[in-house]
Design a protein around this nucleic acid. Structure first.
Lengths: 229, 229
DNA sequence: TGTGTAAGTGTAAAAACTACATTAATAAAT
DNA sequence: ATTTATTAATGTAGTTTTTACACTTACACA
C-alpha cells in the first residue's frame, strides 16, 4: 500500500473569510489591518492557513473565532483562488468562505484587539491580494442564497421588525423594494413568528417584533423556495 | 521581505472533473477505471494533481485534455473537498470541476485508451473516495446553472432539434416538460437561429435544426436570465 | 388636545404560467 | 397513386402570480 503520492507538488492552502454584518447603516464586511509582512498595515480579509489535520470548514470556523470570538456562525464555502502570484510571498491557494453575523452580538473587545473594523460594502477600502474580487463574488453568492434560503435572518438580531428585514433585503439586493409586496411575500413563506411585543425606537406607534421560526422553516422548506423580490 | 510562511503546513491539491455528456440515451458522466493503487480497477472521476506553477483552471483543462484529447471545453470550478481521510494514501484536498461536452465530438480513441466510459447519471457505479458526493453536487449545480445561463447548449451538437433540446432539459431537471410551453419559453429568450435545414432521422416530416446564437446571447444577456421550466 | 411620524393594510390591472388537442408533412407500404 | 403511420408544429383560454399604488391607525411628545 502506498503512503504518498511522492511526485506531486504540495502547496499552502489558506482560508479567507468574507464576514457580512448588518446594522441600521446597512450591509457591512469585517476587515482587519494586516499585522505582518508583506502588506503590513493594509486592509485585508480575515484569513489563515489550513492545518495539516483540519478540514476547510473547521479552519474557517477557527479563523473566524480567533479574530472575533464568535461561535456557531453561519458559514459557507465559496471558491478556491489559485492565481500563481496572488500572494507574493509564496504560492498559496486560498479558499474563500462567507460568514453571516449580526453585528450586535459580536464581541467588540476581540474585534478591537485585532484591529478589525466594519466597512459598508459600498465603501470598503482597497484590499490586499485578490480580496476585493473575493468580496464581490461573495456578494453575488449572498444575493443568490438569500433568494432560496432564509439565511438573511442570520444577519439580524433575534427579534427584528419588518422594516429591518426589508432594509436588509434592500441592502443585499441593492434595490428598493415595495413595502407591502415585500411583507406579503415574506408572510407567504410562513416562517416568522409575530410577537406581541413592539419595538418603540423607530416610531411613536411602535412596530411589531418578529422572530424567525426555525421549526416551521425546517418543516416546510426542506427544499429550496424561490423568493422573487 | 519574507519568502515563505514557514510555519504553515502544505498539502496536496487535486482536481477532479465531473464530465457531463448528452446523447440520445440521456445525460451521462465520463468515468475511468483507476489504473494505480489504491482502489486500482475501481471507477473514478477523471482527476490529477495541481502542479506547482499552475492555476486550478489550467489543471482542470490539462487533466481533461490528457484523458479525452478535448480542448475548448466549458468548465467551471465547483467545490473544495477536504475531509481528512478522503484519500487514504495521503492528505489531499480536491477541487471539483464540472465540464460539459457533446459526446459526438469527443475523441473516442483516447477515451478508449484510458479505459474511460460513459455512464448514465442515474445508473453510474459506486465511485472511489467521495466522488459520488462530488457528482451529486455537480448535478445540482448543473441544474442551477442551466436555469440562468444557456450552458445547456454546450452539451449538444452544433445543430440540434427542439426535441433534443427538450430532452436535454428534461434529463438535467429530471422531470417531464410540456413541449409547447418549453418551445415558447426557449423562443422568448431569442438566442436560437432556426435553420432552413431539417433533421430527417427522427421522423418522416423532419424537424427543423437550430443553432445557438452566441452573438444574440451576449448582446441580450450580459445579465443572467431566469428560465422557469 | 393636537400634531407629527412611521406602521399597517387591500385591491385592481397586468403579466406569466399552465394545461391541453388538432393539423401538417412526409416516407414507406400497399 | 393512395393509404398509412409517425413525429413536428402550432395557439388559446383559464388560472395564478406579480405589480403598482394611497389611506388610515396608533401613539409619544409638544
Amino acid at each position: 500500500m502506498l503512503n504518498s503520492y511522492s511526485s506531486a507538488d504540495k502547496v499552502l492552502l489558506a482560508v479567507d473569510c468574507i464576514i457580512f454584518g448588518f446594522d441600521s447603516e446597512g450591509l457591512k464586511i469585517l476587515l482587519i489591518k494586516r499585522d505582518f509582512e508583506p502588506e503590513k498595515g493594509k486592509w485585508s480579509l480575515i484569513g489563515g492557513f489550513l492545518k495539516r489535520d483540519e478540514i476547510l470548514d473547521d479552519a474557517a470556523i477557527r479563523i473566524l473565532n480567533t479574530y472575533t470570538g464568535l461561535n456557531d456562525i453561519y458559514m459557507e464555502q465559496l471558491y478556491a483562488y489559485s492565481e500563481i502570484d496572488r500572494d507574493p510571498v509564496e504560492r498559496t491557494i486560498s479558499v474563500s468562505y462567507f460568514a453571516l453575523i449580526n453585528i450586535e452580538n459580536h464581541n467588540a473587545e476581540l474585534i478591537k484587539n485585532y484591529h478589525a473594523e466594519w466597512f459598508p460594502i459600498n465603501d470598503a477600502p482597497h484590499l490586499i491580494f485578490d480580496h476585493n474580487e473575493m468580496v464581490q463574488n461573495a456578494i453575488k453568492r449572498l444575493r443568490y442564497k438569500t433568494s432560496i434560503k432564509p439565511i438573511g435572518f442570520e444577519l439580524l438580531p433575534e427579534k427584528f421588525t419588518m422594516r429591518q428585514l426589508l432594509e436588509l433585503y434592500e441592502a443585499i439586493l441593492s434595490k428598493e423594494l415595495d413595502k407591502r409586496n415585500f411583507i406579503s411575500k415574506i408572510n407567504s413563506l410562513e416562517i416568522l413568528n409575530k410577537l406581541d411585543e413592539k419595538d418603540m425606537q423607530s416610531s411613536r406607534k411602535g412596530s411589531y417584533l418578529y422572530t424567525f421560526n426555525k421549526e416551521k422553516y425546517e418543516e416546510k422548506l426542506l427544499n429550496d423556495f424561490v423568493l422573487n423580490l
